[in-house]
Design a protein around this nucleic acid. Sequence first.
DNA 1: TCTGGGGTCCTAGGACCC
DNA 2: TCTGGGGTCCTAGGACCC
Length: 423
Amino acid sequence: MPPIFALVDCNNFYASCERVFNPMLGGKPIVVLSNNDGCVVARSNEAKGLGIGMGVPEFQIRPLLRTHRVQVLSSNYTLYGDMSQRVMETLEQFCPDLEIYSIDEAFLSLVGFAQRDLTEHGRQIRRTVKQWTGIPVSVGIAKTKTLAKIANRIAKRTPDLGGVFDLLGCSDLETVLGRVAVEDVWGIGRNHARLLNQQGITTALQLRGVDDQWIRKRMGIVGLRLVMELRGVSCLDFEQCPAPKQSLSCSRAFGTLIHTLAEMEEAVSVYASRVAEKLRRERLAATVLTVCLTTNEFKEGPQYSNALTLKLPIVTDSTADLIKSALQGIRAIYRDGYLYKKAGVLLTGLVPASQTQADLFDYQDRGKSKRLMSALDAVNDRWGGGTLHYASSGLTREWKTHFHRRSPAYTTHWDELPLVQAK
DNA sequence: TCTGGGGTCCTAGGACCC
DNA sequence: TCTGGGGTCCTAGGACCC
């Protein structure tokens, strides 16, 4: 049976999450900022209407924000992660064949629903998600993932459609694709858009009609697959079980610039701890670790960035082992005389934790380390991340990332639950 | 003063082996 | 004058996504 994809995508997800718990934000322009309140990472429709672009640095639009009384919020990933889970659980009720594609979107396989009115089915999904979670979503339905993305985009931008657009039932696909700019097609980024425009290809319809050999040569197998998808030939499969992770990382810009090795060691130690926690949550272990650091590229002054990749002495998921190697790496590449803006720790060569082989020359008591990590994770789960940490991560953390305008953890912290006042 | 973070896949080129 | 060829593995860099 040919596949049918529905793409369910939350509208302005982070801004919508904030609105669920703060109704005062309804109808107002909202922006959500990245770490250190640096760049705009989410905008409500009203903010988009003011011409605020995605990824714009906050300081550049400060006057505009003030003039239009835009509500400015720091990002609250604890809240968004929890709301995402609620949305996905709701979607699962409709369709157990769910591919969670990102924090705010999922593909559903509708093959079994082909006999039904798909548009009505989509509307029901939409109503239920809104009612159960408070989050508005749009639904795009089509024969391929790429076309479902396009359908979703149209659903989102055309109020008359009621949030759902079914390209399968569309009688005039050519007209629809003719109105989609090539740079808005999923998988076409800035560079490919420039290349295509130079060839006079400016719409999805034109892209659909390009020569196979040409696209294969200029955009590789990825480009050819994309064109096939536009033609309605499904090349990107539905992936219900997420593929095992290839890498895990933690990198962050500092709240204030760092100029001593001691501070850098603290930061790298914290990042190694974070990534170790992620590793254990995924039930994986690492064999390779990379550390990196960099100065502020936007600022005048001497620039330096470097990275070092180490093969870990043993396959491990232990925070202590990872901190040890990360510190060894950072000491090797740290140079005095620079103001550092950012550092990171990346783990690769990941293997399932259960399959780690005991090393003949590993004299550590692995059982003890495992019990220690379980206790560490249990305490931090219960009392909040970082409650229990290694001494190398420091106590002052003056360099730490800041979030000056963060909303409360409404759904995940007892002390921050929203209160409802009875009249 | 002030510019995010975390991922994926593909490709080309070099090293190495037989 | 006068080059071997083919396979595999690894890495760095590019492009893209949310």
